[in-house]
């Protein structure tokens, strides 16, 4: 498969990076503070493709990694507007256009009695946008990930703080990274299969 892709005249960004069958090097740290120090050191050393795995969110990790803010808020605003305007359209079209019937002498469509459903659909679609937007941004569900191959993986959801420097990093050199991670206090550093 890889050979075939090499032969095709594709632009470079479409070809899978040559990772030598590796996901990357994962190091295993004791505390969030040790992990943050390792991330900062790795960034200073010029690595760009790395990921941290932690059992709970660590304050300040996004700054350490140079991560931009999550765009989830914008997704939710779009969904909220869809919900609010969809509710107006729904109530106006069904009540005043498609099936107009006068009940208790009230107008076929008015904004006041429409408010509760406008609000509820706004909240409902925002919640869908939040949850499914979060899952999409996180590429979930993903039932296989090479990081699971790390021998001490179970620690990442328990009490360990993992740092992975991925094989797609242009500076990737397993031996150098191992030395770096060990010097930063990693208890177990491994080259992990893809």
């Amino acid at each position: 498969m890889a050979d075939l892709l090499d032969k095709l005249p594709l632009p470079a960004f479409l070809k899978p990076a040559d990772t030598g069958g590796h996901y990357g090097v994962i190091g295993d740290f004791d505390t969030p503070e040790a992990l943050l120090r390792a991330i900062r050191t790795a960034r200073t050393a010029g690595y760009t493709k790395f990921e941290a795995y932690t059992p709970f969110p660590i304050h300040g990790i996004d700054d350490a990694m140079g991560e931009p803010r999550s765009p989830l808020g914008r997704i939710v605003v779009v969904c909220a507007l869809l919900g609010l305007s969809g509710a107006v359209l729904l109530q106006w079209w069904t009540g005043a256009v498609d099936y107009p019937i006068i009940i208790a002498g009230k107008p076929l469509f008015a904004i006041e009695p429409s408010i509760p459903i406008i609000f509820e659909l706004g909240v409902l679609l925002s919640a869908f946008g939040t949850v499914f937007g979060m899952l999409a941004l996180n590429k979930l569900p993903t039932y296989y990930h090479p990081a699971f191959n790390f021998s001490k993986w179970a620690g990442a959801s328990n009490d360990r703080f993992l740092l992975a420097i991925e094989a797609i990093d242009p500076k990737f050199n397993p031996d150098e990274i191992k030395v770096l991670m060990d010097s930063l206090g990693s208890r177990c550093t491994e080259l992990v299969e893809a």
Binding site: E51, A52, E67, H145, A147, A156
Partner: peptide
């Protein structure tokens, strides 16, 4: 859902 607890 394959949650990994990555920083991202």
């Amino acid at each position: 859902l394959g949650w990994r607890g990555s920083a991202r």
